[in-house]
Nucleic acid binder design. Structure first.
Lengths: 342, 342
DNA sequence: ACAATCATTTCAAACGTTTGCGGAACTATT
DNA sequence: AATAGTTCCGCAAACGTTTGAAATGATTGT
């Protein structure tokens, strides 16, 4: 009508009744006569009345907003997680407000404060690499706001969590390499101060252990970027006992390794088998396509939201849960070789 | 303290003064005595008082929230744009609430309603593929809320816009191929009902035109996914006059084309040169690395926010602007060949 | 001494909504 | 005709904040 959105008071004025009557009519309160209800609803419909979320929030103390903090959106994995968060949140009547920490502790703390002052109902966090101090999370708890960690969790804080089954995925991947005939598998590993780096290495070790094969510690190489790969892998290929398989901590590294291997005149998968981690676009565009461990980011996002909303709307005091998302080995061309030696 | 956040009233009660005095003291209002100011500020500091954004919003009618609607976050390009939006918005004291349309008209309309009921101060939109009806955008305007389109703009609605200089980028890329010796360049093109598909084809045509070379219409092929590429490109390579260059509408397609070419025994860049579009991670992990046109998504995001905040905080009635982000050809290995024939 | 001036503080309204309680106007019961 | 019971509606407070206007108390001027 005039300017901005229609309010309950506009409708009341037009109908010559009080705002409270309009509110009750809209909510089907039994006190209100049928004729008034009809009149109010018709006019609300006609004027396209939508309740003001902000006023509702102030009134109820609930914002219906979920805050999300991720290290970076530009990562394929995180954008799939966000996608899952967004979808389930919207379907449940919540809005999503998100912040990037850009892997920096200071920005993470700032993001927490931002979300807190917005009075979000709950917060979802994946830790930044730079965070080794956790008091800002205690502050969230002190404010009585539920917190759920996903992927990069914080062990120091007791709360709901969603993690991916890294170790099992890594183990499955390495067993697959072993069963395909590899006996000299290099693990291009991530930093060991991050849980994911540690877990994936554990999986590599456990696979060897369970299949009763020895592990050569020289085969565990700290290398998780394409740049490092171009430096490190050529050396590995020159070894007397050349590696016959690579298990990389992420797909970018795996793809770079593939390039290096092919440039050196060796073939994938005929000479060397290769498996990556975090199956995404990348694994489809390499040649041959790259076997990889799928992390189901979308599902992880939904699960985190579900955990949060459960706590918000059901019993706030129920015991904390940790949901484990199963990984899945997606076998493509880079690890399938017919001339199995065993 | 007790529960939840500290309010201005808590401070007032503690100090035995009225809430309005606290508010004024916090704002440095000249009416308030220095001693009171000091007392209030000290206690606010001690109790870590943060003003309630929701109450402020209700009061001022301003939410300090920017709504964003994108087709999908999982695209590298869009996630870089979002990253830029988020960074500048936060630095300017705004929060970001975002929605995905998932390329669906219905979800786009729903997202608009969501953002409107949240009373966002302004909205940033990149059109979904499924949107051919624009009345929901007029509704935003009728509510007096500024609107900025970015990347996938809507020509039917007069408003601020940020676009990328697709055509110039495509033209530069193709000229680069021509100048590197190509005389038979295939364009793997996108759908022509999307502006980007059209613009990039125009760039291809203009490059030929400006360098006085004829265009063979058989060289313009509708193909913009890896799957299509694997079907289409092998045929092209069998032609009598085999293409000596490819310009693809996106990097995924370009990368897939590279695989197909190499599998057929031809070499990149020795036999065939290759340029893609939307320089991202992908262009670094192919072998050889892929020349591509950088779209500066991060900068586009910042620019869109700047436009919106300018309108919000400066003159709301100033004439609409269209900002063009320059593209940039990033030459890597796939298009650099020493045995230039000319 | 009385008013005018000043510094400091509080009041009250406003933003849009919800909701318990009280009230008016009926109807029904005695 | 008085009481009790219905039915329908409005009042007012509350959420946390801002802000112009009004109030308070003290000081100054004549």
């Amino acid at each position: 009508m005039n300017k901005g959105q229609v309010t309950i008071t506009d409708i009341a004025r037009e109908l010559g009744i009080s705002p409270s009557t309009v509110s009750k009519a809209l909510h089907g309160h039994p006190d209100i006569s049928v004729s008034t209800k009809v009149a109010v609803r018709d006019l609300a419909e006609k004027w396209n009345y939508k309740p003001d979320q902000i006023a509702l929030s102030l009134q109820s103390g609930l914002s219906k907003i979920i805050g999300v903090i991720v290290p970076e959106i530009v990562h394929y994995f995180f954008s799939t997680v966000i996608s899952g968060i967004e979808d389930l949140a919207h379907d449940s009547g919540y809005h999503v407000m998100f912040c990037q920490s850009n892997e920096s502790y200071e920005r993470e703390v700032k993001s927490v404060n931002t979300l807190l002052s917005c009075r979000v109902d709950g917060i979802l966090v994946s830790l930044s690499k730079g965070t080794h101090e956790f008091d800002h999370f205690n502050k969230i708890r002190r404010n009585g706001i539920p917190l759920v960690f996903f992927d990069r969790i914080c062990c120091e804080i007791e709360t709901d969590r969603v993690v991916v089954d890294d170790e099992a995925g890594a183990c499955e991947a390495v067993k697959h390499l072993i069963n395909s005939g590899c006996r000299n598998i290099v693990h291009l590993s991530g930093p060991q101060y991050l849980q994911i780096g540690k877990n994936r290495k554990e999986g590599y070790l456990r696979a060897h252990d369970e299949l009763n094969l020895p592990v050569d510690n020289n085969n565990i190489i700290r290398c998780d970027t394409p740049e490092e790969t171009r430096l490190v892998v050529p050396e590995l290929l020159k070894r007397a006992n050349r590696p016959d398989g690579f298990f990389a901590v992420n797909d970018l590294t795996a793809a770079a390794a593939m390039s290096v291997i092919k440039e050196s005149g060796l073939r994938v998968p005929e000479d060397i088998l290769l498996v990556g981690f975090t199956s995404g676009m990348i694994s489809d565009i390499t040649s041959p396509t790259l076997s990889s461990v799928e992390q189901h980011g979308y599902q992880m996002g939904r699960e985190a939201v579900r955990l949060l909303i459960d706590r918000l709307e059901k019993n706030r005091e129920s015991p904390y849960q940790t949901v484990v998302i199963k990984t899945e080995l997606v076998v493509k061309e880079s690890s399938v070789c017919c001339n199995n030696k065993y």
